[in-house]
Design a binder for these strands. Structure first.
Lengths: 339, 339
DNA sequence: TCACTTCTTGAAAGCGATATCTCATGACGA
DNA sequence: TCGTCATGAGATATCGCTTTCAAGAAGTGA
């Protein structure tokens, strides 16, 4: 009943046309800002639209235009579960903020299992005009193939970017890691070690190679490398292993903040202090680092900006505008008290 | 061109009907699981559907059924900006997880300014079947009125829940805060103070009154109350003011983790230690608290569950099932090292 | 065997927009 | 004054699907 009232209250093109004394077609033209409508008629129609508080019906429009004006954001459940990672939320925010100024709508879909059948059907079923796939630290891109059928933009470089035909936005992990290590060196640390990320994920690989590369640039070298899985506990363990090697260490570059925080505790366990004995630099600049004691010096990833760019990219793709295949964002060294 | 191929490749009811040698109507019935279709025909149709990989067109369906199968999640931009608050992300996760098992889609919309015209139009324009409004710590519910036109479920009790006609899911702030204070008292602390949240927000109010109430229950009393705005810096300042009063304090109940962390630094500044000199208990259990040193004892809010319940509620409302007006979730005391 | 439910299935009418096509209308050059 | 054109506006065909409505098939009791 209330149902009926609601829909009954919803004005249609037809009603506006009647109000304004013109045909549906004309109203449609006004609504879509067609140039071929005389100013005076347009005014009358606009008045009718305002008066009736008319809002075009999206479904009807989609049906004929074959555009849904919707963009899907696919988040692997794993990422969602480890929601402690603020990265994801920031990306969503960026996407949403960009889309706010467009006519697109953001459809969030949490993916259970790799590219489940249901999700694929949804994406391929013409429910959205394009898809955004975020998978932060992972290189999983089981959606690559979808891009042949639907515009897809990835957040983070696909690990196996075969053919280079994937559109994606990524941060410059290598350069960012370099500035981190440079900072450590510039502040006089020479006995550096690193807690690297998984070597099957692009960020893990790039940040580690940047560590070696930067060291080399300064005539230094180090085999003090331990790998973690980006979680705080793994950082702590890696740090313990590093310390257990018995070699002197005065600076640590952790591949992300969470592991850096883990390292903090291992360092304290060993009776050492940050940054007096060991300087620590992280990567990401999430709130794990900013609220730690001492506040962590880290490399900031422009997560919100990343979301914004992804949105910009997908919209460009959908609207057939020329779009760069890859966008790389710069990072920024945030100097706090740990190094 | 690719465009054309895509749509051309998209099978329609018509095509399935042809394949199966039946009418569109019959296929539609099968798709919608109508009971009035003979089993054998249903089988044939289903086979055709599978073969053609048919997926019903949502727009067309919406057009006639006047249902969008979409639910909007409205997030005030302020909340999004302070994305350091993991609460929001967790709620979204809960919502998405629940909706995953339904036919509904989640439309995220970030609200700039209070209930902008654009958002209202969107919500009222028949783009969604219902809306979810989250505003964590704020009591802002400029969307209350919408609920007369569209099913709306709030996350967090509206501050002015006039008429009690708003549907919402909330955590039991009062009870949660009570357990926090009880814990402080049980561990022998008697000179308690609290860093309260804004008194124009339900959680702020409830948590403070729980503080007084619990104290009273134990024959205690305290006028050591300072208000913060839920941010870490405000917590630090409140703590300084508390300390500046010169009265002895051996236990602090902070209305949220972020302020508790702020308090940590003020306590250290004063040369005191947590928990030896002053025990600290927070509220929320976000990662500010869990990664702090020492790890914060706090009251966990079931954020993901909250999202799940909100989703469940809105779907119930949309489908006209009986739904409780309010759902209150229990909190859980997480004891770590700060108290 | 006939009249009459009970099932199945097909035909057709929209849902609310967009877009193509057609038709006036008035301007303008010859 | 007449034909040629732009041009603005109306008619109308879809878009893909749901849903009466009606009709044919099948089953039932008399």
């Amino acid at each position: 009943m209330a149902e009926k009232l609601r829909s009954g209250a919803m004005p249609t093109l037809e009603m506006v046309a009647a109000q304004a004394g013109v045909s549906r077609a004309t109203v449609s033209r006004v609504v879509n800002g067609s140039p071929k409508v005389s100013p005076d008629v347009a005014t009358v129609v606009q008045a009718a639209i305002d008066e009736l508080n008319y809002v075009p019906n999206r479904a009807a429009r989609s049906l004929v235009s074959r555009k849904t004006q919707a963009i899907a954001m696919v988040v692997p459940e794993s990422a969602a579960k480890v929601f402690d990672d603020p990265f994801f939320a920031a990306v969503v925010q960026g996407v949403a903020l960009y889309l706010e100024d467009t006519d697109y709508t953001l459809n969030m879909i949490i993916e259970s299992g790799a590219a489940s059948h249901k999700t694929r059907r949804y994406l391929l079923g013409g429910n959205v005009d394009g898809a955004l796939v975020v998978s932060h630290h992972t290189g999983d891109h089981s959606y690559s193939e979808l891009s042949r059928t639907l515009p897809v933009v990835f957040g983070g470089r696909p690990l196996s970017d075969v053919g280079g035909d994937n559109y994606y936005v990524d941060v410059d992990n290598f350069a960012g890691a370099c500035t981190a290590v440079e900072h450590l060196i510039a502040s006089g640390r020479t006995k550096l070690a690193t807690i690297a990320g998984p070597q099957d994920m692009p960020p893990g690989v790039d940040r580690l190679s940047a560590f070696h590369s930067t060291l080399g640039k300064h005539g230094l070298t180090s085999d003090l490398v331990e790998v973690g899985d980006f979680s705080p506990p793994s950082g702590a363990e890696a740090m313990r292993r590093l310390l257990a090697r018995g070699e002197p260490i005065d600076g640590i570059f952790a591949a992300n903040d969470q592991m850096a925080i883990g390292a903090y505790s291992a360092i304290r366990e060993a009776g050492l202090s940050v940054p007096d004995d060991i300087a620590v630099v992280g990567f990401d600049d999430d709130n794990y680092g900013s609220t730690a004691t001492p506040p962590l010096t880290t490399v900031r990833q422009p997560s919100v900006e990343m979301g914004r760019r992804m949105a910009e990219m997908i919209v460009g793709l959908i609207e057939n505008r020329p779009v760069d295949t890859v966008t790389t964002l710069d990072t920024e060294l945030v100097i706090r008290d740990s190094a």
